[in-house]
Amino acid sequence: MSETLLEVKDLTIEIATRRGPATVVDGIDLHVGKGETLGIVGESGCGKSLTMLSLLKLLPNKIRVAGGSAMFGGRDLLTLNNKELRAIRGGRIGFVFQDPMTSLNPVMRIGDQLAEPLIHHRAMSKAAARQRAGELLKLVGIPGAEQRLDAYPHELSGGMRQRVMIAIGLACDPDLLIADEPTTALDVTIQAQIVDLVKGLRQRLGMSVVWITHDLALIAGLADRICVLYAGTVVEDAPVDQLFAEPAHPYTRGLLASIPRMGAPDSARLSSIGGTPPEPGRRPAGCPFAPRCPLAEDVCRTTVPALAPLRGEATPHRVACHVANRVMEAA
C-alpha cells in the first residue's frame, strides 16, 4: 500500500439536540493514501459530509467533534488552532461543495475568487495571481478562460460554475481534494464532463481525492477504494473491484441490489432494503443496521461489530458485521 496521506481514527461527532447531545458520527476510521481516490458512499444523514467538514473545522453550529484524531502530514488536524488551519484550508486541502451556485460569492468576479487563495496562501502578487487564475480556468476546461476571469458567477452555467469551484479547490496545488457530491446538482451529461475532468486532473497533478457521493454507480469508475457509511459508522471498506465483486456487508449488498442496472435482464421488482435509517439520538444498541438487516442475529442487537478484515486475513477488505464471514463462506 502506498504512503498514507490522511488517517482518521475513531472520529466521533455530536449534534446538540433538545434531549442533549446525539451522536451522528460514531467512531469512524478511514485513511487515504498518496495519489489514491477514496469514494465515501452513504445515504443522506449517514455522516459522510460531516466527517469531511470536521477535518477543517467547517462544521455547522450545534455540531461538534467529540473525539478522535485526524493525522495529516504528521499533525492532528483536530488539534490545530484557527491560524494553522487556515494555512491548510484551501492550501494543502482543497474543498469542492455540492451546490456551485451558493458556494461561490455572487458579488465577486470569478477571477478575484480564484486569485484570493493564491494571494493569501502563496503570497503571490495580484498580477501573478491573475495569470495563475487564467491558467487554472484553462486547466478545468473553461473555454475563453481569459475573458471569463471578469465574469460573475450568475453569468456561468451550473456546469461551468462547478468547474470554477474545482479550479478554486486546485488553486494552491493541494495534496488532497475533497469533493462533496460535486455532481449531484448537475445533469447527467454535465456530470460525465466533470467526472472526466477530475479523472484527468488527478492523473496530471498526482493528488489524492476524496469523493463523497450517494451514487454507487458513479463512484464505480472513479474510485480506487470505497468506504460505505451507514448511520455514522464505516460498515465496509474495500478496493473498488472487491467491493463490487463480493460485497460483504448486508447493507452494501442491499444497496447494490437496489440499483436498477441497464444491462440486467428484466426483473419485475427491485430488491429493496425495508425501513429507514435511524435518526441521530435514536440509534439502536448493537449494530446500527440490525433493525433493517435480513440476516440479523441476537448478537447483532446487543454488540456493535468492529471493522475487521474479511475472513480474518490480512486483506484491505474490511467489514463491520458479525455474520459477514459466515455468509461469505457459505456463498
Partner: peptide, 27 residues
C-alpha cells in the same frame, strides 16, 4: 445516444474501459 453514454454503471472494470461519448458545452 449521448445521454445513454453518460450514465454511469455500477461496474468498476467496465467503467474503466468504457468509451464515453462526452457532449461538449451546455444546454
Amino acid at each position: 445516444k449521448a445521454l445513454m453514454s453518460a450514465v454511469p454503471e455500477a461496474d468498476p472494470a467496465g467503467e474503466r474501459t468504457r468509451q464515453r461519448q462526452i457532449l461538449e458545452g451546455d444546454v
